[in-house]
Amino acid sequence: MRRNDKENEVNKRTKEHQFRDLQNAMGVSFENEKLLKQAFTHSSYVNEHRRRPFEDNERLEFLGDAVLELTVSQFLFKKYPTMTEGELTKLRAAIVCEPSLVSFANELGFGKLILLGKGEEMTGGRERPALLADVFEAFIGALYLDQGLEMVISFLEKVVFPKINAGAFSHVMDFKSQLQELVQRDGTGVIEYRVLQEKGPAHNKEFVSKVTLNGEELGIGTGRSKKEAEQHAAQMALDILKAKAT
């Protein structure tokens, strides 16, 4: 056996072991392991192995993107019943954006499993953010095809949803949403807003609003609209709750 053939055989066995380890670590067992391998196959690898029937992961990435949006949307819809459509959209965008997907992929060690062409390997493709994000989406697509939506949700319950529950994406919410998320996470009670005062002429009104938690005042804010006053009250409440927690 020639040296290159020996190296290829060793690399193949190593990858197979890594794929098995990945499935064991995640508690997933693919019925069609070709789908799993395809999820990690970059187009550059396919281009260098034209004599073999390899498929790249681009179609799986397309499917995985849609499945990820659906499952994350469902989770947020149930978790945050008071959030508006705009707020939910903004939060979902932060969860499924490239930097977030890259962090999920890195946490799972996906980079070392990717099948790359030599040129892409030499230019650092294994650490390229866009490539890692694509692989994560392709894996979701492969898992959906092989195991169905419930298994995808089960996987996300281990990898993604705990980070949402821990407030990892709260920074993209407005102050009212952040306060609601914090209270829901701690299970500490009910938030209510009340307008205390309206001042000034009709064309230049100023509102004063109060936010309470279980009837206890947490913050007071002013603004040119009720919404703005509530946002400022929520901002003060967040500062108070965070100070108490430290």
Rank of each mutant, 00 (worst) to 15 (best):
K227L: 11
L36F: 12
N11G: 12
K163E: 04
A130T: 10
A234I: 06
P201G: 08
E7D: 11
K227P: 09
G86H: 08
S209P: 01
K242F: 11
S44A: 03
L145N: 07
L238C: 07
L179M: 09
A105F: 00
H17S: 10
K176Y: 00
E157C: 12
L76I: 14
T188D: 08
L145R: 10
F175C: 14
A133G: 05
T222E: 13
V135K: 02
G86L: 03
T123Q: 11
G109A: 06
T82S: 10
E121M: 12
H49M: 05
N24V: 08
V135P: 07
A142Y: 02
H203D: 14
V159H: 08
A245F: 06
R13N: 12
L156W: 02
L22M: 11
L108N: 00
P53A: 14
D21K: 10
D134P: 06
D174L: 04
V211P: 04
G221I: 05
L131N: 06
S103K: 07
K118V: 11
H171D: 13
E9S: 14
V190G: 06
A130V: 09
T123A: 07
K90H: 06
L132G: 00
F19W: 05
M122Y: 09
D186W: 12
L131C: 07
A142Q: 01
L131G: 04
Q197C: 11
E55C: 09
G141T: 07
E55R: 13
R59C: 07
E216N: 14
Y144K: 02
I240D: 05
K15W: 03
S44N: 01
L70I: 14
G215K: 08
A245P: 01
Q74S: 13
D5W: 08
P99G: 05
D5P: 02
G167M: 03
T14D: 11
S43C: 09
K34R: 13
N32S: 11
P99Q: 03
V208F: 10
N214K: 06
D5V: 15
G117H: 02
L68G: 03
P201F: 09
H203K: 14
V160F: 00
T222H: 09
E192Y: 12
G86P: 01
R185C: 05
R2G: 15
K112R: 12
Q18Y: 11
T14V: 15
I95H: 05
R51V: 14
A130P: 00
D65V: 04
Q180E: 15
R50M: 15
I240C: 00
F110M: 12
I153N: 01
E55M: 11
K78W: 01
M83P: 05
V28K: 01
